[in-house]
Design a binder for these strands. Sequence first.
DNA 1: AATTATTAATGTGTCGACAATATATGTTGA
DNA 2: TCAACATATATTGTCGACACATTAATAATT
Lengths: 218, 218
Amino acid sequence: MTNMKKNIADRVFDTLCTAIVEGEIAPGSKISEPELAKRLKVSRASLREAIGRLEACSLVTRKANIGARVVSLSKEKLLEIYHVREALEGMAARLAAQNITAEEITQLQQLLKRHTDEVNQADGASYFQRSGDLDFHYHIVQSSHNERLISLLCNDLYHLMRMYRYQFGRVSQRAFPALDEHSYVVSAIADGDGEMAELLMRNHIRRSRRNIEQMIKT
Amino acid sequence: MTNMKKNIADRVFDTLCTAIVEGEIAPGSKISEPELAKRLKVSRASLREAIGRLEACSLVTRKANIGARVVSLSKEKLLEIYHVREALEGMAARLAAQNITAEEITQLQQLLKRHTDEVNQADGASYFQRSGDLDFHYHIVQSSHNERLISLLCNDLYHLMRMYRYQFGRVSQRAFPALDEHSYVVSAIADGDGEMAELLMRNHIRRSRRNIEQMIKT
DNA sequence: AATTATTAATGTGTCGACAATATATGTTGA
DNA sequence: TCAACATATATTGTCGACACATTAATAATT
């Protein structure tokens, strides 16, 4: 089962997506269709299909008759994303408190415990460096059971957030406080207190943003 | 100037977008690429490009090797959108209060006055039936000066909201209260009170959603 | 007659080639 | 030497045709 036989365009999308997220293709660099098509041994049609989807999740930008460029990262754009996340994930936490299932609660608590162990073991460093933090947020969004919210955060914005985390690094000393904040959010959701869950999630994300503002204030 | 000479795919997108939004192509109906390509007298490649963009703004859904269907509307999906709007437009109002320019404030106030006149003249009915209400929200989002927020609301979700408004109609008796709520939001933004602006905008959208929940509770 | 197998049709996915546009190169004139 | 124009090259946009998957229609078996 779950034997999704993928199209060429799908595979090309996956390839380019990770290549862009991990910086193998430099931010701001131009994407030459003939060259890439030859390197990946696919037709330009399939490649263009893939590029179209990359554009949909904001990993590339296209200009008419000029072509596609890998998105260029900036402090300002990152902060914009944090504002959007504060709004959307705050709402996601609120809805999760209303709609989460019993199984999802236990799964979320298990995830939180696993994170706690990892952070304690690694002394706070390694975990948040990788995409572990995103996993937590990902699960809460899923538990909102709002398909559009899920699509926006887990399909459209997800890869871009990974890209920033990958390339800006995650030097944060906020591992322990962030972990606490996570546990508060889980408690509020488990209690079914949507108002509190949204408040806590928004504060959590706002603190992350402020932390970044501090660190990269040129 | 502003003489954007458009691609074929752009024109096809515009054509199909309005056709779908206005219901000329029925919700849930299948899109046959060969047939449409022949009717519009364009190649399938250009048509597929356009369909890809329609998918990006959720006007059609595509399944691999099966094809594209016009999105089917439902009460549940509409309420999901309202939750997303409450979160995003609330944040937009907050940011607008911080970032709006003097010119934009006067433009917004003029827009509000025009709306008031129209609603009074038409006795509340006609204006909110058309996309006038969306204009107001559109302007506030623009004034947030958050590019990602603007893109999400004014590019991705905008057409879908128009589609619901077009097809579900807008029977609302809430024209006058809604107009009041609009004016409160503008005041808060003009005062630079982001906290208040967000609160008022969220309440406004939540009331719209509750109103819809009442009307279409089967 | 109902149900499964097999075949025909329709439609989507992919490809290579041509046309339109933008960029790079080279030439001319002041 | 530099600027402006003309030419050449490379890239994107568009097209029609073929390969493959899905659906419909037909045939076969119980």
